[in-house]
Design a binder for these strands. Structure first.
Length: 109
DNA sequence: TTGTTGACGCCCG
DNA sequence: CCGGGCGCCAACA
């Protein structure tokens, strides 16, 4: 049974996200060539169980942490992002205009 | 093989 | 601007 290209490809994009940058599930799925697989990005990470995978740099389209219910991962993710210099507003949202990952990985100052 | 699930995204009010 | 609802599609049991 060959590897799962779907998960493998999605995870590959997540690994492409540079330090101090964040990307939405939809953006990652699209970058992987799977525009309708936004949900599978999170699923892929969950199944991957890769500790070196920068899953914390992945947020939903609203620029917020995806509430998965229990587990303290959502709080951990926020702390990790703040540790990388990513700031949150009062709504707990990230400014994609400043921290949103781009193919150019370029940030306009 | 069929049905249900899910780290989401977009549309509408 | 915010909340609620519908749609997509592979992975899993």
């Amino acid at each position: 049974m060959a590897v799962k290209p779907l998960h493998q490809q999605l995870l590959a994009i997540v690994r492409t996200i540079p330090f101090g940058r964040v990307a939405s599930y939809g953006a990652i799925a699209r970058a992987a060539g799977l525009p309708r697989h936004a949900r599978h990005v999170g699923i892929a990470i969950k199944v991957a169980e890769d500790p070196e995978l920068p899953w914390w740099r992945v947020v939903n389209g609203d620029g917020r942490i995806s509430p998965r219910g229990l587990d303290g991962s959502d709080d951990l993710q926020k702390l990790l992002l703040e540790h990388e210099g990513v700031s949150f507003d009062d709504k707990g949202r990230i400014d994609f205009d400043r921290f949103g990952w781009r193919a150019d990985d370029q940030i306009p100052d």
